[in-house]
Amino acid sequence: MTQHAASLLFALCLLSTCTLGCIAEGPDAAPEVDAGPWMGPASPTTLDFLVTSMSFAVPEGIQASSKTVANPCGVKKGTDNTLYEPLVLDGLKIDGFDLDGTDTQGDGICPHTDYVSPSGTKGVDYGFLHVMDMIRPVRPGQTVEVVLKSAPAQGLMRIGLRLKGVDDLLEDDDVSVQIVTTAETPLLGADGQILAGSSVAVDPDPAFHSTLPGRIEGGVLHAGPGDVTMGKINLLVATDRVIAFKNVRIRAALKARPTGGYEADAIIAGWWERESMSQAIGKAILAIGANQGELQCVLDKYADHSLDGKTCNAMSTILRAKAVSGFITGLPDGAGEP
């Protein structure tokens, strides 16, 4: 039996009658979080989530080019940037959103590539993938998505999500989604992971409270469009940054966790404006040997939205985030407040 199949069997066992047969075949690790739909009592009307990991989306199968590829933004000063890792983007399937309709060329359109999602959705926008080219190798052997993975647990990225007006976690055509920055880091559990059910206070700055319309279909939350601003983000050497996206869409699968509470696996996409991006990651990229000149060059070449004369001023960006249910305290209008 493959590891995956064993995990699945084990997870199923947790939900049904677990007997010795399961144990005999059980994997060494604890059950995978794959518990199927929620099966508790009546759904809560308000449900908070705390982000446990968030990074720029990395399409499955992405790899660095084996050939030496000319640096498309080779504005080097002196030495080569040895960490620059040209990525092979052709033929990649990318899960995301068609933010602008399917057009890739034309009047008022910034020319760009559209991707296809693994399930066949066309027109997926992900201009930021070209920035990933530059920033992905943070340190030898460590990519940006790996480095960012532990950021929420370390308190470097504190994002919460509140679903309001939830009548049914499986089907609900009208919910409201708040995305907030929190003032505290969630607790870590005995397994070293962010603990479901943690309470954290919200950051009082209303600039970092965004609200999107949403609905739930088949246990999947769809939210947007709307603008989202997340503050107090720490990226490598850059502290206290702001990430502001326009026209944000969110898709998040909601599930019950076998060890209690719920979890969400989310894709967040939107337009990241040039100014905001430079402010957010401009300093961080210095730490990995790139520089503003290179970033501006990549933006000049690949920014795919907000054409203003000859310049495109925003770039489609996809974030992947995971979250567990918890409690955000101090939000106005907070149901479930102590």
Partner: peptide
């Protein structure tokens, strides 16, 4: 107990049936 298992040794010695072929409790 073994990692990932929900039954500790003592309980297992009571719960587990003797495997007829093997003649002992395999777990």
């Amino acid at each position: 107990r073994y990692p990932g298992e929900q039954v500790g040794y003592h309980r297992l010695t009571h719960d587990e049936a003797v495997d007829a072929k093997l003649g002992y409790q395999p777990l």
